[in-house]
Write a protein that binds this DNA or RNA. Structure first.
Lengths: 305, 305
DNA sequence: GAACATCCATAGCCCGAGGCTATGACAGAA
DNA sequence: TTCTGTCATAGCCTCGGGCTATGGATGTTC
């Protein structure tokens, strides 16, 4: 009878890719699952939506009729989510800040102080988001503003200001052959097994695998959703992982050592918000982040939260 | 993340009724189930949608923000279903006819003959629909046209032509005290246990319980989704059931007897379609049904399919 | 032409979501 | 007080939506 919006999203993905396999990997589900769901949608509508003749997948007339409605419904649902989140944030005067690693860098005390002066009725709420979401929770409306590492999806939907630029370091298990060195050229690390962000992280995953600095893709042995998971895997000797310099300093563990990596472009921490979100609080927050970094010299800013 | 359209429908129902209990009974689900689903929707949106303070239920601002989107999404999904069904029917040249009882009355041969002349490329498909759907499958787009007993929901969404007017009879188990009579005044039946349509049938259920001819509501001992279920229950002595005169004639069973009932308004069989559906095939079909009855005298029309 | 790769479908398994009944807590009416 | 009506909670069961493994059909390559 009624449909799950997820299934409409599946349908649109297949209609766009005209391939079950590609659509499935874009949606981060298995191909049989996608086939099953589309079949189920077809049987609930009592008609075929795609013509599959072994080598090609094309929309039927019925599929074409559904496509515009499906996209509209998905879009309307996303509008609904954001409207609801906005109403809540506005009346509660709460700005939800998404972050992936710890934030640190002296941002929090500085920004809260400034927000307290400019918008005394507003409060900040912090929510840790998974590495798997490249928009750090902005796309789904779970957060109003995010402090995250670039790149974020460059679709015009998001706007950002760089807050900090830091060299990339590496986390190694204590017993590792290179753990004794004071700094390590990336060329010596390239063939090591790596811990990666989930595939859904997209360009951000590639950045922390330093794919731009390789000839052949990195050897990924495990995936982690957050820093603690990845440190645990490093300590267990499963693989190694790159991380920003500041995080190396604040995340000290007895079983993991951090070393600078030579020859990599630096990483950039940014404050990000939805381009369409014109609320004053968002801009005050972003401005505060940017300003805070002007006042403090690089060395003095490493205050873990 | 994504939502099921069903849950939006639940939400709209509660928003309209401002009561979980009433909304649940309107939706034909239990109240705890409805409460659970609304709570889940609230938690996925991370905000309350209703303010429940023991005696009253009111929308929160977030709930108000969601309501318009939710209605739009539900409406759009229903449009999608109908558009898809239309595309399929148009290109397949198939008109799907919904029916609840057997149709009979000589309609089928007469109408197929006429359709064959006027629209030779079209074919008819018949689908039995549950008594639980007062629109006989028209609302959900499962059928294009329905042959069903009045009343149908009178919202302007549907248009109909009466095809046959028949007295109401009663089905009794062979051993019943009144089975020996040739005709039975309704007053003698009123206090008997009745088999009813499902509650979702609404006004149609009331009609076949003859609620208009009673002082106190009928004593309902069981519910049935179709004629066979109800005859089975009658034969088992569970209760009795009213039915149209023609059906009494064509549904002969050794363990059930049919008798005319005196003092009830007659029942009316109609051909029904969606008011907005302007397809020629629909009108040819409806016209054929109406005409067929003009040619045949009442007695001669009882040809079971 | 044979071997291989690619793509969609099927089968079988597992877990969680969504349904139910039974029951509890609380407010207003009798 | 007691009864009634309303929403919440708990416990249970079924089915839907996810996965892996595998099969069959069709191009592609050597």
């Amino acid at each position: 009878m009624d449909v799950h919006v997820r299934d409409l999203r599946y349908f649109v993905a297949v209609a766009e890719e005209l391939s079950f396999t590609r659509a499935a990997s874009r949606l981060f589900i298995s191909q049989p699952t996608l086939s099953k769901q589309i079949r189920q949608l077809e049987s609930s509508l009592r008609t075929a939506l795609f013509e599959r003749d072994r080598r090609s997948v094309v929309l039927t007339p019925a599929g074409r009729a559904l496509l515009t409605h499906a996209s509209a419904i998905i879009g309307r649902w996303e509008d609904a989510r954001r409207d609801v989140a906005d109403v809540v944030a506005r009346q509660d005067m709460v700005l939800t800040v998404g972050f992936q690693n710890r934030i640190g860098r002296g941002l929090i005390p500085s920004v809260t102080a400034r927000m307290g002066v400019e918008l005394p009725d507003w409060r900040l709420k912090f929510r840790q988001v998974s590495w798997g979401d490249p928009s750090a929770g902005l796309a789904g409306g779970e957060v109003d503003v995010a402090v995250t590492w670039l790149p974020v999806p460059d679709t015009g939907e998001f706007t950002w200001k760089v807050v900090s630029t830091e060299e990339r370091w590496v986390a190694l298990p204590v017993g590792h052959a290179l753990a004794g060195r004071t700094a390590i050229p990336f060329s010596e690390l390239a063939s090591e097994p790596f811990i990666a962000h989930p595939p859904s992280a997209g360009a951000l995953r590639d950045f922390w695998l330093a794919e731009d600095h390789r000839r052949t893709p990195a050897r990924v042995v495990a995936e982690a959703e957050n820093p603690d998971e990845s440190f645990e895997l490093v300590a267990a000797g499963v693989g190694i992982v790159l991380l920003p310099a500041e995080n190396a300093e604040v995340s000290q563990r007895a079983d993991v050592v951090h070393r600078p990596v030579l020859g990599l472009s630096p990483s950039r921490l940014a404050v990000v918000w939805r381009t369409k979100d014109r609320r004053e609080a968002v801009h005050v927050f972003a401005e505060s982040c940017a300003r805070c970094l002007c006042y403090l010299p690089d060395g003095a800013s490493s205050v873990p939260i």
